[in-house]
């Protein structure tokens, strides 16, 4: 039905994952770091959905797993934001490189 090979989806997911990873490891604003992690999760979701259509054993399971991932990601975003606000209250910064209490 489709002329698009599964490799194209995987490649796209890889590019997005790399962008998300780079953002998560280099950006200074905590909010951006969090959203970059969401982007990485999305890249994984693309893989899951692609494998639910193409693959050795295609089926609906991939989509269901991507739903689970989305749910966990939403929960993670909520908790992450709560932590961010708590941190901001304590140290009045959102710069991730100033949150170095793990050093001590």
């Amino acid at each position: 039905m489709s002329a698009i090979p599964v490799n194209a989806y995987l490649l796209l997911a890889l590019v997005l994952f790399c962008i998300g990873l780079f953002g998560a490891l280099t950006k200074k604003n905590t909010v951006i770091v969090l959203i970059s992690i969401e982007l990485m999760l999305n890249a994984v979701n693309i893989n899951l959905v692609a494998f639910s259509k193409y693959g050795i054993n295609p089926g609906i399971t991939g989509q269901i797993f991507s739903l689970f991932t989305i749910t966990v990601a939403a929960a993670e975003a909520a908790v992450g934001l709560a932590i961010l606000i708590a941190l901001y209250r304590n140290r009045s910064t959102v710069q991730i490189d100033e949150m170095n209490t793990m050093k001590h």
């Binding site: 039905m1 489709s2 599964v6 639910s52 259509k53 193409y54 693959g55 050795i56 295609p58 089926g59 609906i60 989509q63």
Partner: peptide, 9 residues
């Protein structure tokens, strides 16, 4: 390389 495509999704 993957083989089949699901058709009924």
């Amino acid at each position: 390389s993957f083989g089949d495509q699901a058709t009924s999704l």
